[in-house]
């Protein structure tokens, strides 16, 4: 947890836009996931988000849905993703954040949800994001994650009224995940109107770093978002690059895509 908080604050005070790529654990394979983690750090990632797939991902558009289905079909169980991460943890220093849904966390083992957080921490994860766990339902989860030294990161949306934004900001640790669009994850041609305004409004309510995700697809978009936000999260666009490259070249393609994003948001 400390590693995430320190890293996010340090990036913030150095005025470096945090670059946060998202990959799906086990897509295209667990071996690739390991190599991707190492390569993405080298390409300039400041935090890496790794998905633990769920059969029914409600916040995700078609690209990440398909990645989840591919990963599950190839047997990417939470425990196997944790061991893959653990095996490369010492080779990278960036914070690692696990993104999954509430049901896999609940079913992972007893006592729930603590068993999941314990295993996540043991494998080297610093934080978790659970998009279908709103702050109201998260009090117990937050306490049990904290006991395992895992940060809980919450999402703020353009539809969240100011009192909710404040509560999300208070609850979120490391950074606040601002959802750029009213919608699911996915590649989008243009940034939504009002995005930068929304980010600035949120930043007026909190001193914590605000990272923006959902739909940021091109280096140009990332650069524009980076001017208002403290970090940009690149999900579907990167998953698409990995899926399109296939096989051995996937890691190379992902790394050069993230390197381009890095150059766009500045060093």
């Amino acid at each position: 947890m400390e590693r995430l908080r320190t890293a996010c604050n340090r990036l913030c005070s150095a005025r470096r836009t945090a670059l946060v790529p998202f990959i799906m654990g086990g897509d295209p394979s667990l071996e690739a996931t390991k190599r991707l983690i190492v390569a993405l750090e080298a390409a300039g990632a400041d935090v890496i988000e790794i998905g633990v797939p769920f059969s029914d991902p409600l916040a995700d558009g078609p690209i990440i849905q398909a990645a989840s289905a591919r990963a599950l079909a190839r047997g990417a169980r939470p425990r196997r993703i944790f061991s893959a991460v653990a095996s490369v943890r010492s080779r990278v220093t960036v914070p690692l954040v696990c993104l999954t849904y509430w049901n896999p966390v609940l079913q992972f083992g007893r006592p729930a949800p603590q068993a999941f957080f314990r295993a996540a921490h043991a494998s080297g994860f610093d934080g978790v994001i659970v998009p279908d766990l709103p702050i109201e339902a998260a009090a117990a989860a937050k306490r049990s994650a904290a006991r395992e030294d895992v940060a809980t990161i919450f999402l703020a949306a353009p539809t969240s009224p100011p009192p909710r934004l404040r509560a999300v900001a208070r609850a979120s640790e490391g950074f606040i995940y601002y959802v750029s669009v009213i919608g699911t994850t996915g590649v989008r041609r243009a940034l939504p109107a009002g995005l930068l305004h929304g980010v600035r409004q949120l930043k007026l309510l909190t001193t914590k770093p605000v990272y923006v995700g959902f739909g940021i697809s091109t280096p140009g978009q990332a650069a524009r978002v980076g001017r208002a936000a403290d970090g940009v999260i690149i999900g579907s666009a990167l998953i698409h690059v990995i899926a399109a490259a296939r096989g051995r070249s996937a890691v190379q393609a992902a790394a050069s895509f993230v390197a381009r994003m890095r150059r766009a948001v500045g060093r």
Partner: peptide, 8 residues
């Protein structure tokens, strides 16, 4: 248990 976007 839903995404934040629909909580409001």
């Amino acid at each position: 248990f839903v995404p934040e976007t629909v909580m409001a």
